[in-house]
C-alpha cells in the first residue's frame, strides 16, 4: 500500500482554489474550537436562507442567551460571523466552500494527534495489482502500520454507495497486503440523519467508521470505531 498525490486535472485545479479561499481556513479554525451547538449553528447558517445575525442569536439561546458564558458567546460570535460570510456567497460557491471547510476541519482535528507531515489531503491509495481509484481521499493519515482514510461530506445526503464501496475496498485491499487502514466518513450533520441514510445502503458498512457533527472531537483521540464494532 502506498499513497500518491491526486492527478492535477482540471477538477483538482479548480478545487484547489476553493480550498485556498481564506474563508475556509477561518471557518475551520472557528469550528475546531466550537462545541456541538456552535457546529449546528454553523450548519444552519451555511445551509443558507436568512442572513440576519440577530435572528440567529435568538435561535441559539445556549450560545447567545443570558446563561451563556462570555467565552462561549464570544466564540459563537466568530462562528456566526464566518458562517454568515459563507452563506452570503452564491449557491454554487457556498456548496463548494462547505465541502472544503469540512475537509479542513477534519485535517485540523487529526493534526491534534498526528504529526502534520502524516496528515495529507487529496491523496490516492495504491495497491499492488489493483487498479487505482480515480477519486482521491479527502484526508489521509499516512502513518506506518496505522494509516487512515477519510471521506468528508457536508450532509448525510452526500453518503452514497460509491463512497462506501471505495472506502471498504481500500480497507480490504490494505488487509490483503497485511496493512491496517482505518476508513471513515466525516459528515457535518446529525448522527441520526447519517444513520437514516446509511440504513438504505447496500454497500458494506460494518468496517467503516462514522464521525458526525456531534462526535467530531473524537477524531482527535483516535480513529473512529467501525459502525459494527
Amino acid at each position: 500500500m502506498r499513497f500518491q498525490d491526486a492527478a492535477r486535472d482540471a477538477r483538482a485545479v479548480v478545487y484547489a482554489s476553493v480550498q485556498a479561499d481564506p474563508l475556509v481556513a477561518r471557518a475551520a479554525e472557528a469550528l475546531v474550537l466550537a462545541n456541538t451547538a456552535g457546529r449546528v449553528l454553523a450548519r444552519a447558517v451555511m445551509n443558507g436562507e436568512t442572513t440576519d445575525a440577530d435572528g440567529w442569536r435568538v435561535a441559539f439561546p445556549t450560545l447567545f442567551g443570558p446563561d451563556a458564558s462570555p467565552e462561549v458567546r464570544t466564540h459563537a460570535q466568530e462562528v456566526l460571523a464566518v458562517s454568515l460570510a459563507v452563506a452570503d456567497r452564491g449557491d454554487q460557491v457556498r456548496s463548494q466552500l462547505r465541502g472544503a471547510i469540512v475537509e479542513e476541519l477534519t485535517e485540523r482535528l487529526l493534526a491534534r494527534r498526528a504529526p502534520a507531515s502524516e496528515v495529507r489531503r487529496e491523496r490516492r491509495i495504491l495497491f499492488d495489482g489493483v487498479r487505482a481509484e480515480i477519486h482521491p481521499y479527502d484526508v489521509t493519515v499516512e502513518a506506518d502500520g496505522r494509516a487512515e482514510a477519510y471521506d468528508c461530506k457536508w450532509g448525510a445526503r452526500g453518503i452514497n454507495g460509491e463512497v462506501m464501496l471505495q472506502l471498504d475496498a481500500a480497507r480490504a485491499n490494505a488487509a490483503a497486503e497485511d496493512e491496517r487502514l482505518a476508513v471513515a466518513l466525516v459528515i457535518f450533520d446529525a448522527r441520526r440523519s447519517c444513520l437514516v441514510r446509511l440504513a438504505r445502503q447496500t454497500a458494506p458498512l460494518g468496517a467503516t467508521g462514522l464521525v458526525s457533527i456531534e462526535t467530531l472531537n473524537r477524531m482527535a483521540a483516535g480513529p473512529p470505531q467501525p459502525l459494527k464494532a
Partner: peptide, 30 residues
C-alpha cells in the same frame, strides 16, 4: 419560533432537505 420562521421561508426543495436534518437538531438544542 425563529427556527420555524426560517424553514417557512424555504422554497428550494434541495435546501429543504438540508433543513430536514438541521431543524429538529437545532430545536432540541434550543
Amino acid at each position: 419560533d425563529r427556527l420555524i420562521d426560517e424553514i417557512e421561508r424555504i422554497s428550494d426543495p434541495h435546501r429543504a432537505i438540508d433543513w430536514l436534518s438541521t431543524f429538529p437538531q437545532a430545536v432540541l438544542l434550543a
